[in-house]
């Protein structure tokens, strides 16, 4: 079987298109590359969706945590503490069994016990909490002069937030937010190793990598392939976020433009 054939059979295997049965013996390098790459679809899906939705909740949480009103601040603080203070792994387990017991009473929660929605919700809440904390930190370090200038122009409330506070907050938070995005993508590998079942063996990259490692009892091939894919993904994220960073900083004089430095401080 040629490699093109393998790619046709297994390229979209992780979303259920193509050959049903996974290879059982005589694994070729091509099969491993294709299947693990196919699994990356899930990692990208979880990461992108969680980031896109989590971003808005994170902004809300940051504003909430910085609010002088106790009734707004306390829930935001608790939410952030809850999701940052406990392991994501346990959150997955808890959410799965929570949805499972909800499903027993209300059948409409059926979809929540499958990974594509249930795990996505957990990742969404989790990344919202982490990014919320990052945004909160940025919100507090907005230069005082910027806000005073906005006041002097007669801006207040929504327009001040929309035009001054929010863009500055994003600009300041962006390097740390990039870091969070990278770690979110790494965290997506946990999904199929917590309780969420990989239905019909449609799993993510790590799922297939560990499948191969189990079958061949040789970890030295599938895991480096996985590492290769993730390093590639990390580079793409860094590139993409770098472009946004450039856009956010475009008004600054060239000398003051902070070069994006990735001190990959661990987020999780």
């Amino acid at each position: 079987m040629s490699c093109i054939q393998t790619i046709q059979d297994y390229g979209l295997r992780s979303i259920g298109i193509g050959e049903r049965l996974l290879p059982k013996t005589d694994f070729t390098l091509c099969e491993q590359f294709t299947l693990i790459g196919s699994g990356m679809i899930w990692n990208v899906y979880f990461g992108v969706m969680a980031l896109a939705t989590g971003f808005f909740l994170a902004t809300a949480l940051a504003v909430g945590k910085a609010s002088p009103n106790k009734w707004v601040r306390k829930p935001a603080e608790w939410f952030i503490f809850l999701f940052r203070g406990s392991p994501l792994f346990i959150q997955f387990f808890f959410a799965y069994f929570f949805f499972l017991s909800l499903k027993k009473t209300y059948p409409m929660f059926d979809a929540f016990t499958s990974a594509w929605l249930g795990a996505l919700i957990v990742l969404f809440l989790n990344t919202a909490a982490y990014s919320g904390e990052i945004f909160y930190g940025a919100l507090r370090s907005i230069p005082k002069g910027d806000i005073e200038a906005a006041d002097a122009y007669g801006m207040s409330g929504w327009s001040r937030f929309r035009r001054i506070v929010w863009p500055t907050m994003l600009r300041l938070a962006w390097p740390a937010y990039t870091n969070e995005a990278i770690f979110l993508f790494h965290a997506t590998t946990l999904v199929f190793f917590s309780a969420f079942p990989a239905w019909q063996q449609r799993g993510d990259a790590l799922y297939y990598a560990s499948y191969f490692a189990d079958k061949t009892f040789n970890p030295f091939v599938p895991y480096p392939i996985l590492a290769f894919y993730f390093i590639l993904l990390t580079l793409v994220i860094v590139g993409g976020f770098g472009l946004v960073n450039k856009h956010l900083n475009r008004h600054l004089p060239a000398a003051k433009k902070s070069k994006m430095r990735f001190r990959l401080n661990l987020a999780r």
Partner: peptide
């Protein structure tokens, strides 16, 4: 260790070290 998910490392090292 930074570019790759830590879970992948965990799963890798356990088998690799044993072997």
């Amino acid at each position: 260790v930074r570019g790759v998910p830590d879970i992948a490392f965990f799963m890798f090292f356990v088998i690799a070290l044993d072997q």
